[in-house]
Structure formats: structure tokens, C-alpha cells
Amino acid sequence: MNTDAEQNLIIRCREGDEGAWRLLLARYEIYVYRLCRQIGGSSEDALDLTQEALVKVLTGLDSFQLGRPFKPWLRQVTVNACLNCLRRRAPETISLEQPVAEDIVLGDTIAGNTGDPAHAAEWRDARDVLRQAMSKLPYQQRLVLVMRHQEGLSYEEIAAATDLPLGTVKTYLYRARQQLKRKLAGVYGWE
């Protein structure tokens, strides 16, 4: 579907044409599902997040500026929908920035076993290991990782998309990657 055809489809959607709604969602639902799966961290959550995001897409189309590329807007709506759900579900949060010792905050200590010898001997596919490790990250860290590595956004774009300060984006990226690198170290036997 070329850009003009897509813009016409969006116009028909705005007019309440349900056939157009169906076409638009069918075009993008896999992308939305994949993004929700990555941000949510599990396939169990992904369907609920996807439904919420798709409703927001249809009911929020009036806010889309015709003439601009659709996918960035769609991504933003999906991210917002995921964040709304995940924040509602998160228990009363303890700040990751809470200091626990000099120069160390709570977020620095969130980790699985880093050097467990029992795991070091077992070969597991790196993708599986990383996928599992990502699902255990705090959702905010997982979100910035997805925005950077899957969506290709710059630090500033991530900050705008997630409504996080730039410094926090960098901090979350760093912590998430350090955690994932520790998992890879277990797979590859790095010291």
C-alpha cells in the first residue's frame, strides 16, 4: 500500500468506516503485537496490551496529522498504551534510584545470579538466555532497550517517546545492558 493509499485509508477510518478500520488494523496488528510483546516481556501480557493499543489507535486517529508518516505515531500510541497498563499493574513501587550504599542505588543491585557455577556449565542458546533475561528486567529498562535496539531511536527520541529525562534513559540503558551482558558472559564463559 503506497503512502497516498494509506492516508486515504486513515481518512476513511476517521469517518467511522469500519471496513477501513479492519484493513488498517490488519496491516499493523503484527507490528503492534510484536512491540507489545517486547515491552510487556511476555506473550501472556502481549495480547491484552495489543488490544488496548489497537483501541487507542482507532479512537485516537483524530490526533494523527495527515501527511506525516503513520508508523512513528502508531509506535507512540502503542508505547503509551503499554506504559498505562504496566504502570497500573506495577505494585507500589520502590524507586530504583533509592540509595543502598555509597555510590550504589537499588537499580544497580537488581540482577539474577551473575556467577552461579551451576549455570555456567550449561550451554543455552544466547537468544533464549537474553529473551528470558529481558523478561525479568524492570519494564522501564526493557522499554528503553526495545526503543533503542528494535526501533532504532536516538537517546533524545527515546526520552521524548517515553517521557523520561535524557539522563534516566542513559542510566536505564546502561543498567539493562550490564545485566544482559552478565547473562551472555554465562553463556560464552567470559571472565
Binding site: 469500519e18 478500520w21 488494523l25 490488519a26 496488528e29 503485537y33 488490544q51 489497537l54
Partner: peptide, 13 residues
């Protein structure tokens, strides 16, 4: 991709 996705689409509509 879950088989339920078209159903989710319909629910959203």
C-alpha cells in the same frame, strides 16, 4: 503470532 490476533482485532473494533 498468536491465532487469537484476528479476534483481538475484532474486539478492538
Amino acid at each position: 503470532i498468536p491465532a487469537a490476533l484476528p479476534f483481538i482485532r475484532q474486539q478492538a473494533i
